[in-house]
């Protein structure tokens, strides 16, 4: 039988299923927390850090990722404070400066209020969110791809760089990859990277309804809150 606990998210008392994460609970109740590496049926690793929230324990608030935080009775969480918005903005800025050539990431940058990018753009193809690795490992149990290397050399690759026989080319990795949908105006050439900002009209809706998911167009690139 399911057990329930009461948690306080942004002031709303929510009857949440015990054992679920704060992020899943918030999304289920229509509170929008931007996220990238989280996929509902995969384990959470807390890699992208976009879903950070303030978790208040004994009067002190800690910044932690909501995807790895399991709900407990009496938990107090704030998803949209000034501090969180500022940190999330800085993370989204780092992300979009690294890989501007993705609609999902452009959407996240817009959603997190990035108006200008203060770093030189790079045009990377992978942001190491690990969605592909986890779907291959956890859903298909194939382990055909994994992380290789450490730090700035970290990348996703086949074992020893050769496609193994147990990769059936099912394409799940490609389907989950946030980099596969380009910005609406098409791919940006090296040297021409910019903030796209096409969905700015959506931002007005999202901004006015702070803390609640308005099912905007933002995040369609990676199917954000709409998953069932």
């Amino acid at each position: 039988m399911l057990k329930y606990v009461n948690v306080n998210i942004d002031g709303a008392i929510i009857h949440a299923i015990k054992g679920t994460s704060a992020l899943d609970t918030a999304i289920e109740y229509g509170i929008c927390i931007p996220h990238l590496c989280h996929v509902p049926y995969l384990s959470d690793i807390g890699a992208c850090r976009l879903c950070i929230v303030e978790h208040v324990v004994n009067g002190r608030s800690n910044v932690t990722t909501s995807c790895t935080l399991n709900v407990e009775e009496g938990m107090v969480i704030m998803t949209n404070t000034d501090r969180i918005r500022r940190l999330r903005h800085n993370l989204a800025e780092l992300l979009v400066a690294q890989a501007p050539n993705s609609r999902a990431i452009q959407d996240i940058a817009l959603r997190c209020g990035v108006k200008e990018v203060r770093y030189p753009f790079r045009n990377e193809d992978c942001v190491l969110c690990g969605r592909c690795v986890r779907v291959c490992t956890e859903v298909w149990k194939a382990r055909a791809i994994g992380f290789v290397g450490r730090g700035k050399d970290r990348h996703v690759d086949y074992p020893f760089g050769v496609r193994p026989e147990f990769c059936k080319q099912c394409g799940s990795c490609i389907q989950l990859c946030p980099m596969t949908i380009t910005p609406c105006d098409g791919p940006m050439k090296p040297g021409e990277e910019r903030l796209c900002g096409n969905c700015e009209s959506q931002l007005i809706i999202a901004d006015e309804m702070v803390g609640s998911c308005v099912w905007c167009k933002l995040g369609e690139g990676f199917a954000c809150g709409r998953y069932v």
Binding site: L91, L94, L95, Q98, F147, R150, G151, K152, D153, R154
Partner: peptide, 21 residues
């Protein structure tokens, strides 16, 4: 630290990289 960061989370991997830059 850039050499020794595991590269798993975004702020450490990209943040240190940008600070170093």
């Amino acid at each position: 630290l850039q050499d020794e960061s595991c590269g798993k989370c975004l702020p450490c991997r990209l943040g240190i990289d940008r600070m170093l830059e």
